[in-house]
């Protein structure tokens, strides 16, 4: 494995996830390292999304330990979960923007919920919107934008809080190749700033372009 001289940021130790009787994740033990760019790949239903959900406690693990920056997730109380999630910027295949709020509001919401002051929020939102090439779209509503543009807003939202880790769950799956390239470039930018990037995808072209570590999942298990 590469990056082994680096510090571990996320540790999974014999993690299982069951939905009712169904095993979505089976005995996964894996480390992610600081400032790593890693792909999780595998066929549909392999457990990629589930694995990511376990990291930000969208779902609790059924068994095993997950340790993020030295904190064992099973020890977190409900009131601590929001603070865990602020370590992450999360990007989805379907963008998940709030359609009743404009672009600026969608992005600033993250900083508002962190309790930042207005001046800082205005400055910071402007910076990230410029970074994703959307600085003049602040007043637009998500549904008036193309898919590629919406995903760039989602990336701006994921980056605005300066998270330690970006989780992108099939971020390019619903985009044309040009938009997909733009997304990859933005993820590289975030990576160059020291962020740990975890991307799930079954886009072989994307993985080939990056040439970094790949974790193969199949039926909930890591393939070597």
């Amino acid at each position: 494995m590469e990056n082994q001289n680096n510090e571990v940021i996320i540790q999974l130790f014999h993690v299982h996830k069951r939905y009712g009787g169904k095993n979505a994740i089976i005995d996964v033990t894996v480390n992610f390292f600081k400032n790593e760019f890693v792909f999780i790949t595998g066929p549909s239903g392999a457990g990629k999304s589930t694995l990511m959900k376990l990291l930000y406690l969208g779902e609790p693990a059924s068994e095993g330990q997950i340790i993020i920056e030295g904190v064992n997730l099973s020890r977190l109380s409900n009131s601590q979960i929001p603070f865990l999630r602020r370590k992450f910027g999360i990007i989805f295949q379907d963008f998940r923007l709030i359609n009743t709020k404009n672009v600026y509001e969608n992005v600033s919401l993250v900083l508002e919920s962190m309790g930042m002051n207005r001046k800082y929020i205005q400055k910071k939102v402007k910076i990230v919107l410029r970074m994703v090439g959307m600085e003049d779209r602040g007043n637009n509503y998500p549904l008036s934008l193309s898919g590629g543009e919406q995903q760039r807003i989602a990336i701006a939202r994921a980056m605005v809080g300066d998270p330690k880790i970006i989780l992108a769950d099939e971020p390019t799956a619903s985009l044309d190749s040009e938009s997909a390239d733009a997304v990859l470039e933005l993820l590289k930018t975030a990576h160059s700033k020291g962020t740990t990037i975890i991307v799930s995808t079954h886009d072989k072209e994307l993985i080939r372009k990056m040439g970094t570590r790949v974790l193969h999942l199949k039926e909930g298990q890591v393939q070597e």
Partner: peptide, 16 residues
């Protein structure tokens, strides 16, 4: 509910 779900994902506390 979707908006609230998204707010929780980006780390908003319940009181927020």
């Amino acid at each position: 509910r979707e908006e609230i779900q998204i707010m929780r994902l980006v780390g908003a506390t319940d009181s927020f």
